[in-house]
Design a protein around this nucleic acid. Structure first.
Lengths: 340, 340
DNA sequence: TTGAAAGCGCTAACAC
DNA sequence: GTGTTAGCGCTTTCAA
């Protein structure tokens, strides 16, 4: 398992070759000011002639920084991998990092063993910061990273009293505006299919739904709420259940667009016309509906901004080591796609 | 951007606290034999009391190893992310690595800038080895890594004279057996929809198709070959084109199961019954067909084994630094799912 | 503007 | 068995 890299030139050899001191070479490779142009060029030449590549282990040992950040995916989200939601976030993280010298590394944490290994890796100083995607309620990883004083930013939060830095979408507001929109279009019997209620985002969306109804003077009936998961099949079944209880339903807020797609199928199977008889709005977590139901009205999350915000928070935390946790909640937007 | 980790105890402090020498502490944390049980426990206690965590930069500087390997995805494959093919491979890589102390890190290389950054990262000694997924024909990254004497293993190869270590599936054999199977079931007019022909895997599959026909004494007609991509829509259009030219087609080998799914749609749209009138076989690159067309006969790739083999080659290369490149081609298997 | 020197925290070789 | 020592290759003062 040992690895030798024979004949790899060191900074010292470059210095000798260029006839300067090590400090000077260090300054040149780090692009620091205060080096005479002629020496800089001499050093550059030596670097090229020798094929010098800085040893990053030595650099981070001496400089206490790695210029790498990790993006961690925990097992339950593993499937997110498959979704545009995920790739959009990663893309925007990458873009935001492009201006820096940071390297983004993804890690999959599937078992407790891998979790422990990652912790050692991170606490061992292999990364300057950690980004976490959709952490689940009971997960202690964020706390452990925070304890180790590693700059850490989550996408989403575990609960209402989350303290570790996070970036989240305004799920409550999004749900509220979706339901208000349905109400303003004359819908009166509005049901909702929620995500798993042990996930904070799902609870927020349910709350937004209830808020909007309350605001309109309507009391949300429990029988109009169907708990489900974020899958298409779950949406289908939840919708079927709702229709049994309330055939008069004329509006639905679905937990995600995947769920919404399932709901649409159930509605059509039951002979309902969409959106004429029943209007459906979903959160576009996964953008799946854009593929199967491109005209579905959705609550849009600003994925691009979310990624950018995560990097911003992380960099801030790295500048000014953990003086505070930082929280950002980004506005969602109703993307009306059909006259529902 | 600098990061301080104040008050992080060092190995030396642990040694002092436990009243032993640094060497002993090092032996304990590395689980080396030859330490008296009582001292070991004393050291363990000191480690816990101080909350010691080894500094990995120092370790890799001194020990010249990082216990990390990188899995690189280049931009064109970015979408693979979304596919079971990818997650299966990653899963099996993770499993294979579980027995070692290695950490798997994924990197996305989307631009030339990111490519350069990754190279610095890898050549700087941040990883002990590199795994590459589906590298494209002109990509020089594998060569540069090999030049830097970094153990490198690819999934798939760039061409027939690939030299850098790789693990591939027997695409030729898979295609050949699929076509033979069709012939043995009495199909006589067999077409093929290929993947993009600048990809070596696609060319291999085409060759297998031609081989099988030649073996049966049939000369493959060029008009029975439709070049396409690996998408569903591509499969649909290619199939439509083929049907125009040869309405008598009764068998099809598709470049992937995604393509096969598209082909099926086109066939049904044209009023053909499947598999009664036309039998279709696809390579199951992406296992998409398993979702939409679970009964489709496919050429199966041993994803689990491919991941394991990649790790094996990588570890071998790390033990015995680049004495040779290693190539493994894994057998594919016809999974007959309907009496085509 | 530059050189010299003092670490960074660990592993590994060598004594005892 | 265990302590000691010499680096690993870099950044970063501090003088010059």
């Amino acid at each position: 398992m040992g690895r030798r890299r024979p004949g790899t030139p060191t900074l010292e050899e470059v210095a000798a070759h260029a006839g300067v001191g090590r400090g000077t070479v260090s300054r040149v490779i780090n692009n620091e000011a205060g080096v005479k142009e002629s020496t800089r060029q001499a050093v550059q030449r030596a670097i090229e002639e020798l094929g010098y590549v800085p040893n990053l282990a030595a650099r981070s040992l001496a400089g206490r920084r790695t210029d790498a950040v990790a993006l961690v995916l925990t097992e339950p989200d593993w499937r997110q991998f498959a979704e545009p939601f995920f790739s959009e976030i990663v893309r925007s993280l990458g873009d935001a990092l492009a201006d820096t010298r940071m390297q983004l590394m993804l890690t999959l944490v599937r078992s407790d063993d891998e979790r422990r290994r990652f912790l050692e890796y991170a606490r061992g100083g292999r990364v300057d910061g950690v980004l976490l995607m959709s952490v689940h309620a009971g997960d202690r990883l964020p706390d452990m990273l925070a304890e180790a004083r590693l700059p850490t930013v989550m996408l989403g939060r575990r609960s209402g009293d989350e303290y570790v830095s996070y970036v989240d979408a305004d799920n409550v507001g999004g749900a509220r505006s979706a339901v208000s929109h349905l109400l303003s279009r004359g819908r009166t019997v509005i049901a909702t299919i929620t995500g798993p209620l042990d996930m904070y985002a799902a609870r927020c969306r349910l709350r937004g739904y209830q808020d909007a109804l309350a605001l309109a003077g309507l009391s949300g009936r429990q029988s109009l709420v169907a708990a489900s998961d974020f899958t298409e099949d779950g949406g289908r079944r939840a919708m079927a259940r709702l229709l049994e209880r309330h055939p008069e339903i004329d509006g639905v807020l679905a937990a995600s667009d995947t769920t919404a797609a399932g709901a649409l199928q159930a509605l059509r199977a039951a002979g309902r016309r969409v959106p004429e008889d029943v209007a459906v709005i979903g959160f576009d977590d996964f953008a799946l509906a854009q593929r199967t139901e491109p005209r579905l009205t959705t609550v849009r999350q600003p994925l691009e901004e979310m990624g950018r915000a995560m990097i911003r928070l992380l960099l801030e935390d790295m500048e000014e080591p953990s003086v505070a946790y930082r929280h950002v909640i980004l506005r969602t937007e109703l993307a009306v796609r059909e006259s529902a």
